[in-house]
Simulated assay, not measured.
Amino acid sequence: MSLLSTIPFSLLELAPIRQGQSAGDTLRHSLAYAQAAERLGYNRFWLAEHHNMEGIASSATAVLIGYIAGNTQKIRVGSGGIMLPNHPPLVVAEQFGTLESLYPGRIDLGLGRAPGSDPITSRALNRDPMRAEHFPEEVAELQKLLGPADPNKRVKAVPGEGTEVPIWLLGSSLFSAQLAAQRGLPYAFAGHFAPRFVYDAIRLYRSQFQPSKVLDKPYVMLGLPLVAAETDDEAAYIGTSSLQRILALMRGQPLWLKPPVDNMEPLWSEGEKASVNAFLGLSVQGGPESIKERLESIVQELEVDELMFTNDVYDEQKRIEALSILMSVKA
Rank of each mutant, 00 (worst) to 15 (best):
A248Q: 06
T231I: 07
E234A: 06
A229D: 00
A248M: 12
M264I: 15
P259T: 13
A235Q: 02
Y237F: 15
E270M: 12
S242C: 13
P259Q: 13
A236I: 00
A236Q: 04
I246V: 15
I246Y: 13
S241I: 00
W256S: 12
L226Y: 09
L255P: 04
S269H: 13
Q244I: 02
L247Y: 08
Y219H: 10
W256F: 14
G239Q: 02
V227W: 00
N263S: 14
Q253G: 02
A236H: 09
P259N: 06
T231C: 03
R251C: 09
V227D: 00
T231R: 06
G223Q: 00
V220Q: 06
W256D: 12
S242T: 14
I246Q: 09
A235H: 01
Q244V: 02
Y219F: 11
A274L: 12
Q244C: 04
L255I: 06
S269T: 15
S269W: 13
G252H: 09
S241C: 06
P259E: 15
L249N: 11
K217R: 15
E265R: 15
L257H: 01
G252Y: 10
D232Q: 04
L267G: 08
L267D: 03
S242R: 14
D233N: 08
P218W: 01
Y219L: 03
V220C: 02
G271T: 14
I246A: 07
A228R: 05
R245K: 13
E234Y: 07
W256N: 14
I238V: 12
V220A: 03
D232M: 01
P266M: 12
A274W: 03
A236P: 00
S241D: 00
V227M: 01
A274C: 04
P266S: 11
P259V: 09
W256A: 11
A248H: 11
P225Q: 11
D233R: 11
S269Q: 10
I238E: 01
K258H: 13
G271Y: 13
D232P: 01
W268A: 09
G252A: 10
M264N: 13
S241M: 07
L224I: 02
L224F: 02
R251A: 08
V261S: 08
R251I: 08
A248F: 11
E270I: 11
G223E: 04
G239M: 02
A236N: 06
L226S: 05
G223K: 03
P254L: 10
L257V: 05
T231Y: 07
A229F: 00
D262S: 14
I246N: 02
P254D: 05
T231A: 07
N263H: 14
D233C: 05
W268C: 11
P218R: 00
V220E: 01
A229T: 02
V227T: 07
T231W: 08
P266W: 10
L247M: 07
L267T: 05
V220W: 02
P259D: 10
A229P: 05
A235P: 01
L222Q: 03
L243W: 00
V220D: 03
E234N: 04
Q253H: 10
